[in-house]
Design a protein around this nucleic acid. Structure first.
Length: 320
DNA sequence: GGTAGACCTGGACGC
DNA sequence: GCGTCCAGGTCTACC
């Protein structure tokens, strides 16, 4: 049955979602840099996440808020039953509902530093494709450029402000990505990636299956265009595989500035691997929350970071 | 297996 | 306002 409508103005759908116990919208959204990348928008004032989702009948913008142990997702139009199911799945993926309280406890047993704050989840995208593209746009570039690339991709390639679908990006000209979206030499690599997704050549169930060894996933990811060791490591954590680090210049800076490591970059990389080894299957989480805590000490709690000011200023040089 | 250089963009800096 | 330099991972060619 269609939702009731107010006179003159079509009512948007409102969904109630039940997150895992202990879920905290502000903490768990503002836990990874992608929360400031378009089309995500965190409201510092309202403590809500707004973003446009691409559903079967087109784009729709939703506002997600928390009240007690429930989340509400308010959409700007009525959703069909199928769309509601898709929207629930996309929101669940973003907010990592698949990681329940038991998994958080398992992490906190290995790394007790985060038990009190309850930190255990890392924000991600509604689709693996968006996570992969966001990762590629974060490679070999300062953070403000990553922010800009994602904004322009949504503006020029996405429909109605949504993140581009793989199908749409697969049909986009390299010149558009380079000229309008400022992705530079990543243009053809992004199109090639989009074509692999659009043609169904990325086996997502295989990548997500607990039966697939981490090493196999890592090697496969590295075989994709534009994906090297860092990007593959990062996509691993976005897939829920935390057993390895994604080492970039920020990791090395962290090793020097926070962990007091010395030596060449190669030596520090080895020291970092050894340092996080005790955290086993949760290595990335332990590393990331340490890094995040450093950022928050410098810039204040992440839920207070404004996309257009604080969150845009993140560069290694400014965080020395 | 290791390394050098090219690939782009945008910010910082000097003039 | 303009030119130059530099940071940032991946890829390719080469040793």
């Amino acid at each position: 049955m269609a939702p009731p409508r107010k006179a003159g103005k079509p009512a948007g759908t409102r969904l109630t979602l039940r997150p895992p116990a202990g879920f905290d919208l502000a903490r768990d959204v503002c836990s990874y840099g992608y929360f400031v990348l378009a089309p995500n928008h965190w409201s510092v004032r309202d403590h809500t996440l707004t973003r446009t989702l691409h559903l079967d009948e087109g784009p729709t913008t939703c506002i997600i808020s928390q009240s007690g142990d429930r989340l509400a997702a308010r959409f700007d139009r009525a959703l069909s039953r199928i769309e509601q199911t898709t929207a629930r799945a996309q929101i669940a993926r973003m907010l990592r509902f698949d990681e329940d309280e038991a998994q958080a406890r398992a992490f906190h047993r290995v790394d007790k530093r985060w038990k009190r704050s309850g930190r255990a989840r890392l924000f991600r995208s509604p689709t693996l494709f968006e996570d992969v593209v966001k990762t590629v746009t974060s490679c070999n570039v300062a953070w403000p450029s990553t922010v800009n690339m994602n904004a322009q991709l949504c503006r020029h390639v996405g429909v109605g402000g949504a993140f581009p679908t793989a199908q749409k990006m697969a049909r986009t000209r390299a010149g558009t990505l380079r000229g309008r979206c400022r992705v530079g030499y990543r243009d053809q690599r992004l199109i090639d990636l989009a074509r692999l997704f659009a043609r169904g050549q990325i086996d997502e169930p295989w990548l997500e299956s607990p039966d697939t060894p981490d090493d196999d996933v890592f090697e496969f990811l590295k075989s994709l265009p534009g994906i090297g060791p860092y990007a593959a490591g990062n996509i691993m954590q976005l897939l829920g595989r935390y057993s390895r680090l994604a080492i970039d210049t920020e990791t090395v800076r962290h090793g020097k500035a926070v962990l007091g490591m010395t030596g060449t970059e190669r030596q520090i990389t080895k020291k970092l691997e050894a340092h996080y080894e005790p955290f086993g299957e949760f290595k990335f989480k332990s590393y990331w929350f340490e890094l995040w805590r450093f950022y928050e000490q410098k810039k204040g709690p992440a839920h207070t970071w404004d996309r257009d000011t604080t969150a845009k200023t993140f560069t290694a040089a400014q965080l020395q």
